[in-house]
Structures are given as C-alpha cells and as structure tokens.
Design a protein around this nucleic acid. Structure first.
Length: 583
RNA sequence: UGGGGCGUCGCCAAGCGGUAAGGCACGGGGUUUUGAUCCCCGCAUGCGCAGGUUCGAAUCCUGCCGCCCCAGCCA
C-alpha cells in the first residue's frame, strides 16, 4: 500500500482551498499555456468605496497570483468620466493595502486610451466597426428584444473611408455629445444582445480625472476591458457572473485585434514608458459574495451614506472595507473568511456568522484581555479598609504567556456589570445574587450581603464580603463557585465612550422588496448604542485600531479616528459567543 | 417564446464512474478563575425531479422542474 494519503507533515504550508478557477490555472500551467506565467488584475471603477464583495475578488486575484508566483495589477477602470472621481482612487488603494495585498503595477484604463483608439481604427479599417448616427433611443428601437432579433442600423454599410473620417472627427470634437457612436459590426440577430452591434466608443465632452481634456470620446467597458487585459499581459481575467454573456464579445474583440501579433497597436504605451507584452487572456466568471443582514450594492451603500442612515462610508456598521476596518475586523480575518467561503458559480448568500467566526478566531488568538464594565453597579466590599489599595498582576492572555502581564488595581469599591447581579435569579443563573457567592475575576470569592436601594426601589449599590481564604494564589482559591464575573476598581477606573454595534438590518435579505418594502424599511433601530463605560487603567495605553477583548463581553477596538488617550473611544467588533444567552 | 448560467445538510462547499470531505449554524458531553477558548460526540441510505446506461451513478445520457443574469451611448 504505497498510495495511501500522505498526512501533511508538521510545518508544511497549510492546504490551499481549491476551487474551479485555481484548477483552471493549475491545468493551464501544466499545459504550458502562457509559458506557465500567471497574471491577474483587480479592476475597480473609481466610483465608490470597496466593500466585502470586492474583498472576495481582491483575495482571489491577488491570492492566485501569489500562489503561482505570478503578478497582480491594480487597474482603475476609468472609462466614464461622468461617474468617476479621484476621491475614490486613494481610498481604494488604501483599502487594498490594508487587506494585505500589494500590486505589481498600478494602471488605469485611461493609460491605454491612445492604444484603444488605434485598436478602434484597426476595427474600422477591417470593416469590423462603423460610425452610427442613431440616437440612443433609436439604437434601442433597432436592438430588438430578448426574443426578437434586432435590425441593422441604416449606417451599418458606410464605407471604410467614411467611417474612418467620421471616427477621426468624433475624436476631434466635431460632433455633439451622444450624436454618434462607434459600433462593432457583429450580428443584430444574435440571441446574445451584447453581440448586436454594441457601441464601443461614445462622445462625452467631459474632462477626465487623468487625461483632462485630451479626449472627448471614451471607450465602453466591453471593448476597453478586454484590450486592457491583453495589454497588461493578463492571463486569467476573473470577473463576476453577470459578465458571462459578455465573454463572446470579449473574445470577439481580442480575436479581431490580435494584440500579441500587432505591435503597432501598443506602440504608444511603450513610447510612454509602460511595460507592455500583450497576451491573449481568458475571462473566467465566478459568483459575487453576498452576506445576509446587509446590502452590498454600491447604489444602496451610497444611499445609506447620503441619506444619513449611517455615519459615513466608514461607519462600523457598513460592509465597506473602511467600515469593517473601523469596526475592528482584522484583515487576516476577512481573508480567512473568503477562503472558507470558497469560489464557485453559484449565487449565494453567506451567513454573517461565518464572518464573525473568522473574526473571533483571529482575535481570540491575539487580542489582549482587559476588563471593562459597560453598565455599572457598585459593589462595596465591606471587610476591606476604606483605604485598601492593592495591585494585582493579570495575564494578558489565558493561553499565550508571550503576551505578558499587566497590573490591575483593586480596592474596596468595584464596578460590576448590572446584569451580573439578580435579586430574583432566573433558572441557571451563575452570577451574583443576595446571599450568594461569585468569584471576582483574579481576586477571590465574594458574598453579597446587602442590597442598598434608592427611594424608587432601584438598586444603588451592593455590599458584600470577600472570603480571604479564596484570594488568588491562596490554597483556598480553587474552591468551586458557579460563576466568575469581571470588575473594575471604582477608584481607579477611567471613563470611556463605548459604541455597541449590531447588524444594520433586521432581516436576512434586505434586498428583497417583493413585499413592497425596501431595504430602508428594514433598518435595525438598535444597530448602534453608545454608552459610557468604566475601564481598567491599562486600557488608557491602547493605541487607535488596537484590538482587545473586554472579558466576558466581546472584542473591541480603539476607534481609528476618535480614540485618544485622554478621551478613549472603543467600538465593539463582535460579542463573545454566549451559550447562556441563547438558552 | 431568445441567449447565458446554476441546482449536494438550515447557510457556504468538497466531490471529476468505486459507494457523500470540511467550515458555519444547531444539539449533547468534557476541561476552564471569561457561561469565552479548547477537546470529544451527533447532524444528507442522500446529491432538484423522472427515466436510462453501468457490476456500480452526485458524477455519463435523455426529458422535465426551479432559481439567477441579459434589451445603458454604465461597469
């Protein structure tokens, strides 16, 4: 038996989750395609902030390149100056880097405008494209429907000379916006509407963020994207499912153009100093990554911001990368999350519990433990002197001694969590109750002797005694009690603003408007709650964006923007799993 | 009624003709000075449905059914 499964030897790199795209790449390399080279790209349009769905594509593209020692470019797909803005460019770059990836090259589709133009002239020369004078409405009318074929444009049979002349004059700015388009000459009867003589250039007399006023004609996505891929030497062009029926057009353009075989087309790039070895890329489509209890479309995210339903693009409740970053989700957790989810062609909605589990897994391993009380009630330990003041050493992590220890001051009066005490305990309650005992984390066992009330009957403070035999480190410390609660010395506590976040929507699929309601009707009114909490003093040293665990409560992060040493602000990233709350 | 995709556990997802991986969720138990973590155990005689081929089918064939995408001079 020599072909038994070989166990992964210790120290070996962890197995890479396989998927159909990775398999295609493996097969292509085995077959020697592209000389075994792998080149991918992440091509966002700079017209919005990146979100978790983009992160899936980023992880896939950069991940494939990394695994096969290939390259991955960041390309801004900026072919529509009407909707794009430099504002987004820097944000996108910063998000990609934060996620943990670095591009081999930074490009813009606009870097290729001259080559794109040359390519278009080639199509015209070859009788594969024509200038069409039809209005947008007329084009629509000629296009036919899903079930009926379209009709040829009356301008379809113009001579090459006339087309060339007209196209050059389009570029020269002789015609008004929308007056003419350059269209590929394919097949108006195709069952695939994308092949019904699609527009590849339109007139837009708009200043472009990169090229200024150099151009008044701009290439369309289908045309520009495949050419950009080829020009960059991309081998595997990964995109989402909705582009599946654009693939015939992608292939058609590249077949007509033959960029690898026609160096003149890319001469402008080399002249401009851009590395350029054209390839014949393959487009491969995968399904988008959707999450439940949120929305992921740019339009809806944009609306949440502009309607002030959230506090900006980086609101910690937003599924934007800026949002989850501010929420305190580590980039490694997001990468692990998409790795777990996998890559397929199935439409899917992933449970946010999978993301949360990834976040907890990452944070459990490395977040220092601290104590904080979010909803305080005072517990006075009456058998301690009023001046009692001692310093306790606490481990920063229960399993990783390398994280060291810290000092925690302890005194006669401590804050404990209001719901860690109950006058009439529910069944199974393991915490403090009148006459009952509970362990004060790292201190010892206290018994509650008195419940001091306000005039209105509410609890003002609790009085109890600490059993000295059970002090931490004493032989009696291992005495069993049902519960352990956290605390903060009242005398030493520092105040902080703590923002408690929950899911933004109260239904699993806010996109579903079949009942006449829209996503805005499903906003969770309790998605953000701000409290003033008491923290143990060590928390004053937390730096912005540092993750910590507030014991028994959850993982929190010092707010990236608002947190200062003098005025601490923490955001709750995710609660701890709580099997008690469930029951 | 056109074209392109997709259907494996509640949610993801392996599987590539040799008898259904894994994760999340869920349930049960153990350890625990976090009701956390960690560790066990359980969780599809079944792969959209119906036929067929085969010694053998989630994998191959045929026919149905269901869901998603496409009629921007957006990407």
């Amino acid at each position: 038996m020599t072909d038994a499964v070989v166990p992964t030897p210790p120290g070996a790199s962890p197995p890479v989750a396989n998927n159909f795209i990775r398999q295609i790449v493996v097969n292509d390399r085995a077959a020697g395609k592209h000389g075994g080279r792998v080149a991918t790209r992440f091509p966002p349009e700079p017209n919005g902030y990146l979100h978790l769905g983009h992160a899936k594509s980023i992880c896939l593209n950069f991940g494939i390149a990394r695994e096969f020692s290939g390259t991955c470019a960041l390309r801004f797909d900026d072919t529509n100056p009407a909707r794009e803005d430099v504002e987004y460019v820097e944000a996108i770059k910063s998000d990609v880097r934060w996620l943990g990836f670095e591009w081999n090259e930074l490009r813009h589709t606009s870097d290729y405008f001259e080559a794109l133009y040359l390519c278009a002239e080639k199509l015209v020369h070859d009788g594969k494209a024509f200038v069409c004078d039809l209005s947008a409405d007329a084009v629509r009318a000629y296009r036919g429907t899903l079930t009926e074929p379209g009709r040829n444009s009356p301008y379809r049979d113009r001579s090459v000379e006339e087309n060339l002349d007209l196209f050059r004059r389009m570029r020269a700015g002789e015609f008004a916006d929308g007056a003419r388009t350059l269209r590929a000459k394919i097949d108006m009867a195709s069952g695939n509407i994308n092949m019904r003589d699609p527009a590849i250039y339109r007139i837009r007399k708009l200043s472009h963020q990169n090229t200024g006023d150099t151009w008044c004609i701009y290439p369309m996505y289908d045309y520009a994207h495949c050419v950009s891929d080829a020009v960059e030497g991309i081998t595997h062009s990964l995109c989402t499912l909705e582009f599946e029926d654009h693939r015939p057009l992608y292939d058609w353009c590249l077949d007509q153009l033959d960029l690898p075989g026609d160096a003149a087309l890319t001469e402008p790039l080399r002249r401009a100093g851009l590395r350029c070895t054209p390839s014949r890329p393959q487009q491969i489509e995968f399904s988008r990554g959707n999450l439940d209890y949120t929305v992921m479309s740019k339009r809806k995210l944009m609306a949440l911001v502009s309607d002030h339903l959230v506090d900006g693009w980086d609101d910690p409740r937003m599924p934007t990368l800026a949002g989850v970053r501010r929420r305190g989700f580590p980039p490694a957790a997001i990468r692990a999350f998409w790795e777990r989810v996998g890559v397929t062609k199935q439409n899917s909605v992933i449970a946010c519990s999978v993301l949360e589990a990834s976040v907890r897994e990452d944070l459990d391993a490395r977040a220092p433990r601290r104590m904080a009380v979010l909803d305080p009630i005072k517990l006075v330990i009456t058998n301690l002197d009023a001046a009692h003041d001692e310093t306790l050493a606490f481990a920063n992590h229960p399993k990783n001694a390398e994280l060291g220890t810290r000092n925690v001051p302890f005194s006669r009066g401590v804050w404990i969590e209001r719901d860690d005490f109950a006058e009439v305990p529910p069944k199974g309650f393991h915490r403090l109750l009148p006459g009952g005992e509970v362990r004060l984390r790292g201190v010892g066992i206290v018994r509650c002797n008195n419940t001091i009330k306000n005039d209105d009957g509410s609890i003002r403070e609790l009085h109890g005694t600490l059993d000295p035999e059970t002090r931490h480190g004493m032989p009696g410390a291992d005495r069993k009690v049902k519960g352990t609660i956290h605390w903060v010395s009242a005398k030493h506590a520092i105040a902080a603003e703590v923002r408690l976040y929950d899911r933004l929507f109260s239904v699993p699929n806010p996109d579903d408007d079949s009942d006449g309601k829209t996503y805005a009707d499903h906003l969770n009114p309790h998605s953000k709650r701000v409290v003033t909490a008491w923290l143990e003093p060590a928390l004053a040293d937390t730096r912005a964006e540092e993750n910590v665990q507030f014991e028994r409560l959850g993982y929190f992060v010092a707010d990236r923007h608002d947190h200062t040493r003098g005025k601490p602000v923490f955001n709750r990233s995710v609660t701890l799993r709580d099997s008690w709350a469930k029951g």
